[in-house]
Design a protein around this nucleic acid. Structure first.
Lengths: 105, 105
DNA sequence: TTTACATATGAATAATTATTTATATATAAT
DNA sequence: ATTATATATAAATAATTATTCATATGTAAA
């Protein structure tokens, strides 16, 4: 398994499906089937994503009867997610200088 | 150019070289040459990374004589970077239940 | 003790992203 | 004007990551 660096955490957050899962888990713990249903995404793909998240330490899981329940491994993760949640806040400044405008396509 | 979503921001942060550049720029504005020198990475590769960062709105640039100076486009970016900076803080919780231990490799 | 259900895994392929190399452009200095 | 310097770009290749599909595993119910 890989070492957990901030780059790895960003990697986990940088995939649409993984991020969607993390956001769902930041609201409530969920079984795999519920995630599959709520996202409409193929079960094996969801399982793969969950595996990545698990192996990188962002989620933990336990079995409950037939189901396996996933949850965020840490509350500080919620904080990170919410800090970037609204992308507009991050990249709100647009430079007005001539050169920058030329740089835009 | 791509729309700026939180996934795109995470993508930009999820590459070792790009993250290194962003961290350097969060301390001071820098010319391309200075970034090349301080990282020891090939100039065209640095220029590529800077282009990605620019096109995704995380940095801005302007010309000053022969040099082109890059800086972060927004201070809130610094905040994000520092929130995740210490990965240990994020993934500090390790579940102790039997099933989770079985899951570990 | 067979069948159904929930989830995981592995192998194959597809898609995306990173890196290199060679070259172009723009400014500045001679 | 010519040359040097700083940076950017484009095309080719290499490397990584995502997705699909088929199948395995483990639990529970009949």
């Amino acid at each position: 398994m890989d070492k957990i660096t901030d780059v790895n955490i960003y990697k986990m957050l940088s995939d649409e499906i993984r991020l969607k899962i993390l956001k769902m888990l930041s609201i409530k713990n969920m079984a795999v089937g519920a995630i599959v249903e709520e996202t409409g995404i193929d079960q094996p793909l969801i399982s793969h994503k969950l595996k990545e998240l698990r192996e990188n330490g962002l989620t933990v899981s336990y079995r409950s009867g037939k189901n396996i329940i996933y949850s965020l491994s840490s509350d500080s993760l919620k904080r990170v997610i919410s800090v970037v949640e609204d992308a507009g806040n991050i990249v709100d400044h647009v430079c007005n200088c001539v050169e920058c405008k030329e740089n835009d396509e």
